[in-house]
Design a protein around this nucleic acid. Structure first.
Lengths: 215, 215
DNA sequence: TGTTGTGAAGGCGTTCACAGCC
DNA sequence: GGCTGTGAACGCCTTCACAACA
């Protein structure tokens, strides 16, 4: 199988969401063109993305909505639930835990860690906040597969190391810093500062030249 | 000036942060090589990115840390403060407002809006939650420049339209949906579902083939 | 006629590699 | 010797365009 690009995978997520909506609307078939326009991309891109994984459509007709959704679900590994550890019980951590979409997409936060003695032992939602020193032990017991880092910057790399040592397969990092993890661990970053600064750049430049970018 | 790629701008944000740290450490000079290794990229990439905006270094020596930081600050439009409206006073909105890094980087949330009558009139942090119907009026009075969408998916496009009508120059969208805005409005998205699903994909696939991606 | 699947072409961003300067 | 700035080469991702098929 051709190595799949990061951007293709991200679009797959978008297709998946559109297909869920379209299915809820009761539509049975959808063309690459209609899928594309809901995402603001080209139909060729949609077909190319899907073609990396197989031939899911029928020429002249389009794609069966339900079938395609199920195939993408399987490809993305969403045909199962994932056990997640949240590290950092501050603002962001609390918001993530309270966020329903998490569980809805199949990601169950089963443990929360913090370093602050004032927080350890308290509850966050339904979960007990544990000390980070227990991470390795607890992660093993609870069979943690994913880690979410919602700590201050200075602790992020250290927490990443702990998560890696605890055997997680992937890390979602909210701390605004580049993290280094071994190649067998997947890493994704959500960095609001970068997004804001990128917006700032676009607006500040608009007066100057004549350029623009979207995503 | 060459049109600047989105990825270059994002790296600029990273350089800026590294330079802040390095400056705090008291270093006066830094080479593209050292800047690069802190970000996990190549030194050629650093030099190329910077070269789009001018020649900031000295051959044989490297870059003056403070000078380079100030230049990047100006390029990113961070030599001023930005007035931000937050729409959506739920979990995510509240976390964003409580998040210090926002203001620290020059982004001041000066108004909060929601649609829910139970929330309107309440306070979130130091701010009064206003009804979205007042968005246009208030945005004008408070000279809002940026909008942050932290609403449920179904309201996102409508809120985007309101923000555009209110004259914002850019929107940061946390709702997991593609938004359509006119070309003169900058748009950035933070989509946790996509990141999680992308992690899920990477891990699920790891057993299968032998591939990997980072950012 | 409508739409997919895909090789080929094109475009864009990254990396190379080296001249130029300290 | 060290390091920047940059044209050229490279490689990857997107778009084109059309054969294949309903």
């Amino acid at each position: 199988m051709t190595p799949i690009s990061e951007s293709t995978v991200r679009r797959l997520s978008h297709y998946y969401r559109v297909l869920q909506e379209v299915e809820a609307e009761g539509k049975r078939l959808i063309s690459s063109h209609r899928l594309a326009e809901r995402e603001g991309i080209t139909s060729a891109q949609v077909r190319k993305d899907l073609s990396y994984f197989g031939s899911f459509g029928r020429r002249g007709l389009g794609y069966n909505v339900r079938h395609l959704r199920e195939r993408i679900r399987d490809i993305l590994g969403l045909d199962r639930r994932w056990r997640v550890a949240l590290v950092g019980a501050g603002n962001i951590g609390a918001a993530l835990l309270a966020y329903r979409g998490f569980a809805r997409q199949g990601f169950d936060v089963v443990a929360v860690f913090d370093r602050d003695p004032a927080r350890v032992g308290q509850r966050l939602g339904e979960l007990l906040i544990r000390d980070v020193s227990e991470l390795a032990k607890t992660a093993g017991e609870l069979r943690i597969e994913l880690g979410v880092i919602a700590t201050p910057v200075r602790a992020a790399q250290e927490v990443a190391d702990l998560l890696v040592a605890a055997g997680v397969g992937g890390i979602l990092n909210f701390a605004p810093r580049k993290l280094f993890v071994p190649p067998h661990v997947a890493l994704r970053n959500v960095d609001m500062s970068v997004e804001l600064e990128s917006l700032s750049f676009s607006i500040a430049q608009m007066g100057v030249g004549r350029r623009r970018r979207a995503r």
